[in-house]
Design a binder for these strands. Structure first.
Lengths: 252, 252
DNA sequence: ACCTGAACACCGTTCAAGT
DNA sequence: ACCTGAACACCGTTCAAGT
């Protein structure tokens, strides 16, 4: 486990794999791309923890050690997986830059990234590192910056807006994904869960007074039926961001 | 690894541990709190991956198996660690609700949480699950909601504002933390790193045209000397949020 | 009654041995 | 030249054995 995190990996080698994924080096017919696609299937179904070289190799009917010459190691494989799905965030739908109103372009970036994380839940579990740009991430970055270009923001403001926007989306997607996982694992709705917890919690918290928290989470539960509402938070955050950018641009 | 994620853990037991951490069950003198504090020291220095029961037990001069009766298991220990540091986000500084301008209260929440994540970098690596409220998280939630109370937002808007705000901070802190880790591990500055990568990358990307991305990351590099700037993105996002909330409130 | 050693079923990765 | 089995140094957790 500790060992996993320690190996550094060679960025130059990774770039080669990212940009030339169909070059085969062996006689088994394997390519980085074939391995990556198989791994994405496994991760979509079983989560990032299921991505072990033994498990992916099994999927491809080879031994785990066969994979090493093609993908260098586990961290590199995950980078390859991430870049592959990142490149598909806008496939099958129109590009954000196509919308005439910049507000709609911002909203489109938000929903496309949200759907992307829910389609590939493991993406919220991947630790970011020093970004080594692959074709997928590069193309997405260009697509999204274009949607923010020409509306009156400076280059730096465009970069900061996009970076923070994507951090908000992925942070809230992470909460949603893990909540869904918890719901599945316990096969309990939020209400059932709460009913099991609350008597114990009431005893534990006896004497403590958190009036604001009680009022607000009471309202949340009554309005949404949920104990936490990251998706609602994202809708709200998107509109606040749009209003804030508009105010910023108007003041010029 | 897969096994780690699979064990569910008993929430009722966890609540007991969270709220009565100094109850000792054995003759070794250990308590959940002592174990938790030792684990936090290890994690602050060596990261979340270093939190193995063997490693924590070594710190306390007992065997790994001794810990089980006190902390139930690794996932529960991490929850205990997280709640403990969460309770200290505002210790040693004034509470956000003390500021007279709500804008300053929002900014205070942002900086306190940012510093918290940088002080305990492992916090950005903990997977959120179904939240089991401990004393630390409950107190912080009350503190932060109070800072947003009475400025004209509905209960639901307060909740959504806080949730999205914290997701943005932790998402950007996560990027910063992992960037710092990568910089330490490679002992390379962003510039050195870039000089090693860019010739290989230029060859790989030959023929591809990403004019907006090139222009914007060029500006970012020239202005900040960095290849990525999550901290700047947070400053920008905070001001946009404040402006957006102000616009929302004015329209009423 | 509490503590712990050995054991189980996993990991990523290396390296020598097979084909 | 490519593929792979055994081995190494780890995990979390269980359970029977020790004190």
């Amino acid at each position: 486990m500790a060992k996993r995190a320690e190996r550094k990996g060679d960025p130059v080698k990774l770039i080669g794999l990212l940009w030339r994924p169909t070059v085969s080096t062996g006689r088994s017919g394997l390519t980085p791309k074939l391995i990556t696609d198989a791994a994405i299937r496994v991760a979509d179904d079983e989560g990032l923890d299921a991505i072990t070289l033994r498990r992916v190799a099994e999927e491809l009917h080879v031994s785990a050690m066969t994979l090493y010459p093609y993908i260098a190691g586990r961290p590199e494989l995950i980078e390859l997986m991430l870049d592959a799905v990142t490149g598909e965030v806008y496939t099958g739908q129109d590009l954000p830059a196509g919308r005439s109103d910049w507000r709609d372009r911002v909203r489109h970036i938000v929903t496309a990234n949200w759907q992307h994380h829910l389609r590939h839940p493991w993406t919220v579990d991947v630790r970011p590192g020093r970004p080594v740009p692959g074709p997928g991430a590069s193309g997405k970055y260009e697509t999204e910056l274009r949607a923010l270009d020409g509306i009156g923001l400076s280059d730096l403001e465009m970069e900061h807006t996009l970076t923070s926007l994507l951090a908000t989306v992925s942070g809230l997607a992470r909460e949603t994904v893990e909540l869904n996982r918890a719901r599945e694992q316990s096969s309990q709705s939020d209400l059932q869960w709460w009913n099991e917890i609350s008597p114990v919690l009431a005893t534990a918290m006896a004497g403590l007074d958190h009036p604001t928290a009680e009022r607000v989470s009471g309202t949340l539960g009554e309005t949404t039926g949920l104990s936490a509402d990251p998706e609602g938070a994202l809708r709200h955050a998107t509109e606040v961001l749009v209003a804030g950018l508009a105010a910023l641009l108007e003041g010029r």
